[in-house]
Structures are given as C-alpha cells and as structure tokens.
Simulated scan of single mutants.
Amino acid sequence: MAIRPLSPLEARVLGTLMEKARTVPDSYPLTLNAVVSGCNQKSSREPAMQVSESEAQQALDELKRLTLVFETSGGRATRWEHNFERAYGVPGAAAALLGLLMLRGPQTAGELRIHAERWHRFADISSVEAFLDELQERSEEKGGPLVLRLPRAPGAREARWAQLVCGPVDASALAMDERPAPAPAAGLLARVEALEAEVAALRAQVAALAAPR
C-alpha cells in the first residue's frame, strides 16, 4: 500500500532521523530534543526551518502512525528511530539519496554523490544515477516513483532531481528556480591582478637591493 505524501515538516523530521542514524550512530536513536536540533540546523538544510518541540512531537506521532518511525525506550528519555527502508521497500543506498533530497531539496547526481559521503559511499556518479533511475521507474504496485528528474535549467550542465515523498512537484517551476553559482570572474580577477602587481613590485625591490653598487 502506498504511503500518503508527507508534509514538509514530516519529511524534515524523518530525514533528520535518517541522517543521524548514518552520521552519528553513537547518538542514535534520537531524543525529541536531538530531533528538534537536527531539524533546525543551519547547514545542510534547504529550506531552513525553525521547528518547535511540539511541532516535532506532532510530526513524530504522525510518522509513527504511518510506521515510518518507532518509539524506543532507553535511559530516561524516549528515543526515536526511522523505518524508512522497510516502509518504502528501498535499499539503503537509495534511502540515502532520498534522505538527502528531503533535507537539501533538488540536487544533481554529482551533488548527491558528494553530499552522501557520510551516508553511503557511491563508487561514481553512474551508480548514483542508476539508483535514481530505479526510484523514478518504481512501479505503481510498489507505490509509484519516489524521485523525478527535472528539466535542465538554461545554462545548467546537469539536471537536478527532486523527491516525490512529499507528493507531486511542479517540475518546470523547480527547474527554473535553479540558481547558477555566482561567477567569481570580476572580483576574483581583480584580486589576482592586484596580487600579481604586488608580487612584481616586491620582485623589483628585491632585484634593486641585490644589484651591485
């Protein structure tokens, strides 16, 4: 049976559990406080969120109802762990890609391979693309596609991929929303030219001092 589309908050909570299970296994399963901190990280999150404890708890309760997370007892605090691979029927490598897309938004296969370094080490970009293709071609019997390859934006070298765990996306809008990395040309060239001029002046001074009198 297909799992209903998740809300952005539910996806952030679930993605956070998936990330911490792989990157900080000694601290996993997570307490509610750790879930909130992970959701509100300033790095590796797109978009940034400010999730309260009550909002995170509500999301965890709903994810538990969907069997996407489990509550575990250990110590004095209740802890939470995800059940993503089993619930969606995907292997760990594919789950790592989906978790990254849930936490960081649309990315290229190359970006996913770099960002997945601490989650799962992919041999090359081709292996990332192979898992993405499988997720995109997932049959309706298994719940349907979980990712979508977006149209390549004008001037972009690679197409980005978006997750469908939160439901259908506007592919054209997401593709056009891609912002190319700012070109370093003007400022960087100016700095390089200034440094080269300074080096040339210093060399001239050294040569003048070294010249026989």
Rank of each mutant, 00 (worst) to 15 (best):
R45G: 08
R22T: 01
A94T: 05
W80G: 10
L98Q: 09
D133N: 09
Q136N: 05
P47G: 13
A87T: 07
D177L: 09
A201V: 01
I125E: 04
M49N: 06
T31W: 02
P145Q: 02
A77P: 10
L135Y: 01
G167M: 01
V199C: 02
P8M: 02
A130C: 08
A156Q: 03
T72A: 09
G89I: 07
P168Y: 04
G92Y: 01
L188N: 02
V36Y: 05
E53K: 14
V51R: 04
A87C: 08
L189Y: 03
G92I: 02
R76L: 10
L6A: 11
G155V: 01
V35S: 09
P47T: 09
A200M: 02
T16F: 02
G155A: 05
A34C: 14
V192T: 04
L32C: 15
A95H: 05
R113F: 08
R152Q: 10
D61H: 14
A183G: 13
G38M: 03
A11D: 05
L202H: 09
V51Y: 02
G75E: 04
M102S: 14
L148G: 05
L164T: 08
V13A: 07
P212W: 01
A2V: 06
E46C: 08
W161H: 02
L17W: 06
R138L: 11
W119Q: 14
S7E: 14
A159P: 04
A21M: 05
G144Q: 10
E129W: 02
Q57P: 06
A194T: 00
G75N: 04
L98M: 14
G74N: 04
L14S: 07
L14Y: 02
E141N: 10
A156C: 00
T67C: 09
E117W: 14
A207E: 06
G74F: 01
